[in-house]
Simulated assay, not measured.
Amino acid sequence: MTTLNSQVKSRFKIPALGCYLALTAGCATGQPNTFTFTADLSPDFAYQAVAVYEPAKGETCSVPGGRNTEVGFNLKWRETYTPNSEIALHRTVSGCPLVIRRIKLEINSAYGKDWGDISGDSAVVAIRDELEEQYKGTFGEAGESTFYGQCQWLFRTSGKPRILRKILDCKKTDALGEPGRGRPFSAYTLDQLPGKTVKMAIKLADEERPAIGDTWVKVHNGWKRCMGDNFEDQYAFCYGNYKDFSGFQMPDGQKCTIYPGCTE
């Protein structure tokens, strides 16, 4: 009887352990443990992504210091950039089974050649065990889900030379380009993602605009910078004076009187 009981326990113990290992690997049902994140961006744009992991539901373990619970993609986007990122759904770190909970995204571009002539704005993909249907991203027959946004360049001047600086401002939109609330965003349940593709589609607005109101004046062929009290006035609001303007300097050092054409 003892031998028979041992055989029965052995027979059922191995599959049970196998199911546990499969579950922590995200393949309990034979599904892939990864999905693809990709982006459709304007030329000279790139995204950075950081996948954030937390202990899986029901787990009481923790990772000492939270080390290795985030995985980055395209972190050196100015040196090398890959649109497609294969992201794991489940990972085990320090013996603790983890599951992906969000992807922190940064949409970046450079407006000049110097290393500091860059700007970016954020976006997020949230991943939960459960979501109400109205908040869940949807997938087409090809297994791809797309969320949308639009970015716009905002320009200002900085410092005594009034050097032109640009800020990237990104907002959520629908598929037709109608603006929504907040930054580009989408959400999914964990069981939606195995083997699927999530795409972030971001358009660039046709026109740029001043970052700060009442500092530039719109003219027929661009924008002119208000002088303010004097050339050293860092704020230089117009305050109704639409006759006195100042020059400014482009990031490459070119002296200009109108943006974006530089010369009138």
Rank of each mutant, 00 (worst) to 15 (best):
T138D: 11
Y242Q: 06
F147V: 00
C27G: 08
G72N: 13
D252A: 09
K196W: 03
K218S: 08
K255G: 08
S122T: 15
G65F: 03
W115G: 12
L193S: 09
F237G: 14
M1W: 13
V50F: 11
R225I: 10
I127H: 06
Y20E: 14
N230T: 04
L176A: 15
C27P: 08
R102H: 13
A187H: 10
T189Q: 12
K57Q: 07
H220S: 15
C19F: 02
Q152M: 07
V63K: 07
A110H: 07
G228A: 08
Y53M: 00
G261K: 13
R91Q: 06
T29K: 12
P194V: 01
V63C: 02
E59G: 07
D244Q: 10
Y47L: 04
I212M: 14
K203P: 10
V124H: 11
V125N: 03
N221H: 14
I107V: 14
K218H: 12
A187R: 02
F237M: 15
Y20D: 13
G182K: 12
T173S: 11
G120Y: 04
D114F: 07
F231A: 11
I163A: 12
G140R: 04
A201E: 00
W153R: 09
T36P: 01
V217T: 01
I167E: 15
C27I: 05
Q254R: 15
T189F: 04
A16V: 03
L89G: 04
E232H: 07
I202T: 12
F35R: 04
A187F: 07
V50Q: 12
R128L: 00
G58E: 03
G213K: 14
S109K: 00
Q192F: 10
K160W: 08
A236E: 10
L204R: 13
Q7Y: 15
L131E: 09
N74I: 07
S246A: 15
D114P: 02
A205I: 01
F73Q: 00
G65S: 08
S62K: 08
T173P: 10
E133S: 15
W77A: 04
R128C: 10
T29V: 02
Q150G: 01
L204E: 14
L131P: 09
R67I: 09
D114T: 06
L21E: 15
W216M: 00
G228P: 00
D174E: 04
V217Y: 05
V93A: 07
T34V: 09
L41V: 00
Y111T: 06
A205L: 05
A142M: 02
P64I: 05
S94W: 03
Q48V: 11
Y135I: 10
P97G: 06
N74G: 04
N74D: 05
A51Q: 05
V8I: 14
C256L: 04
R78Q: 13
F147D: 06
T257I: 14
L168Q: 05
L193V: 05
A51F: 07
C151Y: 06
C238E: 09
K57V: 04
T173H: 10
G213Q: 14
I87V: 12
L131Q: 02
F237H: 14
N33C: 05
W153H: 08
N108I: 05
K218E: 11
V219R: 02
V52E: 15
V99W: 09
S122I: 15
S158V: 13
T36G: 03
D121M: 12
